[in-house]
Amino acid sequence: MTAIQFNNVSKTYGQGLKKQKVLHDLSLSIMTGEVFGFLGPNGAGKSTTIKLLLNFIRPDQGDIHVKQCRVGKDNYLHHIGYLPETPCFYENLTASEIMYFSGKISGLKQDQLKEQTQDILKRLKLDHAQSWQIGTYSKGMKQRLGLALALVHDPEIYILDEPMSGLDPMGRYLITDVILELKQRGKTVFFSSHILSDVEKLCNRIAILNKGKHLFSGAIDEILPQYGSNLEHAFMNIIQTDDRGKNG
């Protein structure tokens, strides 16, 4: 069953002479229960795709569906847990307060919420800091809190934009562990990353994007013999071939 479906989605930023097409006719399916890696160099259109998926911006053409709900028309956000690339919080609130807000606004009951909050904060090693104001948190702690917020209402689909960015090895280990557990529980995870070793370890399938163009999607086993001996080589080959093609 399809969890996320992009149908011929295009997006342009700016107007007039400054008009720039950042996404060209993207069609992609992410199946329920799979961990899907979304790869591409900086400026490839990964974050734009995620913003389109969350309805922060609207596509010029095409449509996006999340569990049969059309993005921009139906209510689907209760199915989603989202971690932005650089999570920004209300810095004067504490982790407990922001967790309470996120859970409550996603429809969780009081007793359920208390239990969930404690479990998740403990799992992400933030329980000792739950009554601290978020302004006093380090970058890694904020990133882990961002993931805690995505997990709090136990959604079916997780959209993680560069979840490992700015994390120390301990933080990376914790987040990798959480994603593996979600995979075991049959949750759908759609995440963008630059760290190809993590992608190789976690993902069932990947898609590669370059300058807004969808170059490849499929299982990691499909890409490896065809484009390179490991994911890094394969990724570089695909991007360089595309760039050479564009430069003539």
């Binding site: 969350l54 922060f56 209510n75 956000l77 209760h78 989603i80 989202y82 932005p84 650089t86 999570p87 920004c88 919080f89 209300y90 922001i98 996120s102 606004i105 996603s106 429809g107 917020l149």
Partner: peptide, 13 residues
């Protein structure tokens, strides 16, 4: 500007 609004608008609101 700092996208703190994502924290709220990625929820069912």
């Amino acid at each position: 500007e700092k996208k703190t609004v994502y924290l709220i608008l990625s929820r069912p609101v």
